[in-house]
Design a protein around this nucleic acid. Structure first.
Lengths: 254, 254
DNA sequence: GTCAATACTTTGTCATGACAAACTGAAAAA
DNA sequence: TTTTTCAGTTTGTCATGACAAAGTATTGAC
């Protein structure tokens, strides 16, 4: 039994790599490995074949194999040790913290998101917001206030500021789609963000809006997002009902 | 002026690469680039020299240059575009979410952490904890309850469970060092973790311990951490004073 | 003047080869 | 028996060379 485990090298069946495909070879290899691990054919703790042999068997170069393995290492499925080998540490992809909006999250969790646009106006940005977005003080921003429902329950009260020259937002669009979706459609893809997560008690008005008791605990999240060109896309200051929502993170260290 | 910006290629002074150093070449190159960007010698928005020229000028191969650039791309400083070039998007390193303990954070923020060990015992793990740590139900764990101060103010009430066969913990050590530091010294390096951040109101007892009013908002964080071998190291369930603490995250998307 | 085709630049992918460093385990020495 | 040494395994680093794909800028046709 014990001997079995130590010899549990990858029982990979012949892999069909498609060299005519636009999908890079390293990605094809990574996908195949990921599949085997997710299906449990290579168990947690088992070592996979070494890079050199794997490369030879698949008919690709070692750098290509390395890149495929690296891809899965970055996702937290594999761990490498020099002189030892590469081991499976987790059967599922541990995604890094996602850069997605609440709307996207709810859609994928099938929680029937609905959005009510409470306010939509163009106004000068307060100093703190202008600084967060790296705009000149007093620059105009589109200011949005939305109430997000999951099913029939209010879940979050969201305030956003978007540089006014970036996109023209309509209440109808905001009610139908997430802000990030609208930004993406306009060609602005959020790539980098900083978030601060905290908590505080609800004011009377906030409690009423969110169907909570006065003084109930709320999760606060402020975020600034930039696109690949370093352009500030969005500043957000959101309130979540702590009784209905929490943030889940997967971390991995070098 | 505008012409100046577009021609603002990296004014890199001759870089001294040390080929005898144990520090990898790609890392030396990355460090040098990072320095130039942090010091503003390559401004945000400016394009850096293309890979081929940079490699030639530094006297290294293109893969080495690419790896250096890739390193900074992953840290959110640079963005690459095929056919265009590589651009500076942020002058500071945007670290991914750190896998460090509160103690380490406070030390680096120079906030004089102090720890009071309220409880330290060996007991069977509750089912939820055993499951989080992937232990058999009822397995013994070392159970710790600590109160963490920053300066003279209590900041967090921390509960941890550590598999009992992993490390022998002493109250004196826990008072002097962070848990992660002790784990690392024993050879267990946390590599992967999942966290859930939420909020709730303080109970009377919690409020008293943390010098808060009854019902004050607290940030909750539960975390399970694993080492590179997939061994569960630690389960933690912590309470932070929302009035004194928040979580800061830097995210980047593919 | 406007639009389309073309040339050029720059990053992306892949192969081959070589040596170094870290770890493991077995053999040899104390 | 215990420790040290050494050989073998495996990942880490680096070089060179080649072609592909995407984006930009220029040129030419209309």
């Amino acid at each position: 039994m014990a001997a079995d485990l130590s010899s549990a090298r990858s029982p990979v069946r012949p892999v069909e790599l498609d060299r005519t495909s636009p999908v890079p070879l390293y990605f094809q290899v990574a996908s195949r490995l990921q599949e085997l691990i997710e299906q449990g054919e290579i168990g947690v703790g088992a070592r996979i074949e070494n890079e050199v042999d794997l490369a030879e068997r698949l008919g690709v170069s070692r750098p290509t194999t390395r890149r495929a393995i690296q891809y899965l290492v970055e996702r937290g499925m594999l761990v490498r040790k020099r002189g030892v080998g590469t081991q499976v540490v987790h059967p599922k992809v541990r995604r890094p913290v996602e850069l997605s909006s609440l709307y996207d999250d709810l859609v994928s969790a099938d929680r029937r998101p609905r959005t009510e646009v409470l306010d939509l106006r163009v106004a000068p940005a307060p100093d703190a917001v202008a600084e967060a977005l790296a705009l000149a003080p007093g620059s105009e921003v589109t200011w949005i206030e939305r109430l997000r429902y999951a099913g029939d329950e209010p879940l979050a009260l969201m305030h956003n500021a978007i540089p006014v020259d970036l996109i023209r937002l309509e209440a109808a669009d905001l009610a139908a789609y997430g802000l990030y979706e609208l930004l993406r459609r306009a060609g602005f893809v959020p790539r980098i963000a900083t978030q601060v997560i905290g908590a505080r008690s609800a004011t009377t008005a906030e409690a009423r809006t969110l169907h909570e008791k006065r003084g109930a605990s709320l999760l606060t999240m402020t975020r600034t997002a930039w696109d690949a060109g370093g352009r500030a896309l969005e500043y957000g200051s959101h309130l979540y009902r702590a009784s209905r929502y929490s943030f889940e993170l997967n971390l991995s260290a070098g």
